[in-house]
Amino acid sequence: MSEHHTGPVEIGAPMNYAEHEKTYNMFLSATKFGTIALCALMIAMAAGFFTAAGFFGGLILFVFLVVAGTIILR
């Protein structure tokens, strides 16, 4: 059914720390840019629904905010 291991847990497969670092950095980047995109979407939706900007004004604002946020974060 299951394997029974005896001995210390530290004796196992060697860890690939470079791959862990790369995965963590990708996660941080996705979190940063995802947050920028969601904030830009909320601002653009507010501009589109509650002002005279309309759909296309909100769309232009969304694209502008995503590009500006991406440039600032780099």
Rank of each mutant, 00 (worst) to 15 (best):
F33Y: 15
H4V: 13
E21N: 07
F33M: 14
H20G: 00
F49I: 11
F33D: 06
V66M: 06
T51Q: 03
T35I: 12
M42F: 09
N16W: 02
G54K: 02
M15K: 09
I60Y: 07
L28H: 08
K22Q: 13
K32F: 03
V67E: 03
V9H: 03
V9I: 08
V67Q: 06
E3H: 06
P14G: 07
M42D: 04
K32S: 10
L59E: 06
T31I: 10
M15W: 00
F64S: 11
P14I: 08
T23R: 14
A18K: 08
T6N: 02
I11E: 08
M1F: 00
A30D: 13
Y17H: 12
F33S: 06
L73M: 14
V67T: 10
A68P: 00
L65T: 03
A46H: 07
Y24K: 12
S2W: 01
F62K: 05
I43P: 01
I71P: 01
I60Q: 03
V66G: 01
P8M: 06
F49Q: 09
A44C: 06
M15D: 08
V67I: 15
L41T: 15
A30R: 11
A30C: 07
A53L: 12
F55E: 10
A18T: 09
F62D: 03
G34N: 11
G54P: 02
A37C: 09
V67P: 00
F55M: 13
T51F: 02
V63D: 02
K32Q: 13
A18I: 05
F33E: 09
A40C: 07
A53Q: 03
K32R: 15
G7K: 01
Y17Q: 11
H20I: 09
Y17K: 10
K22W: 07
M45V: 15
C39K: 13
K32Y: 03
T6V: 04
A68K: 09
L65F: 07
L65R: 04
L65D: 02
L61W: 03
M1C: 01
A13H: 05
E21G: 04
G54M: 03
G34Q: 10
I36T: 11
A37S: 15
S29K: 15
N25L: 13
N25T: 09
T31F: 10
G57L: 03
V9G: 00
I72V: 15
K22G: 01
M26E: 15
I36N: 06
A47V: 14
